[in-house]
Amino acid sequence: MLGIYDEREIVPLEGTWKANVGDSVVGTVASAKGSVCIVDLSSFVRGLIVLRKYETAPEKGSIISAVIRDVENRRTAILEGSSELHGGILMKVKPSKVPRLIGKSNTMINQIADLTAVRIVVGMNGLVWISGENSARAVAAIERVCEEAHVPGLTMRIKEMLEKEKGIIGNDIEKGTI
């Protein structure tokens, strides 16, 4: 069933992201003027970092991860504990798939990161940062998780997929060195 009837609302399995206090997010710095830094979260919700005196503003366009400290009027998320993510790529997934992508106590995301040997940071807003040699394989695995999020046995399938590919990764490296 796609939606569950609540009192006056259909609760959909698909869903847009609503900013909640405590959410980890990933975004790009849209502008940095004075002590205020605006973060594009790829949503109608904008992130805002208020810099402290001794802090230097991150460069425009850089990727950051942070946690939401407060939400004003549903569309401005005040961020804290921001750190810059260097290099890597950003991919966008449906926010409704993020819990499955992370998995119970991080099982799914750790598995993908381990088997592809990449670094991954997932934002509740649906932006995922990936860095490492095998980013393309991690992207493929994440796309599959999102597509099959509702089908049981997913952790095993992703494991099989990535272990089978491990051989191919080895081959590629060999080809590259010849």
Partner: peptide, 11 residues
């Protein structure tokens, strides 16, 4: 609209 996950009170 429903497949976009935008909350509606009815289909």
């Amino acid at each position: 609209m429903a497949s976009a996950g935008i909350p509606m009170r009815d289909l």
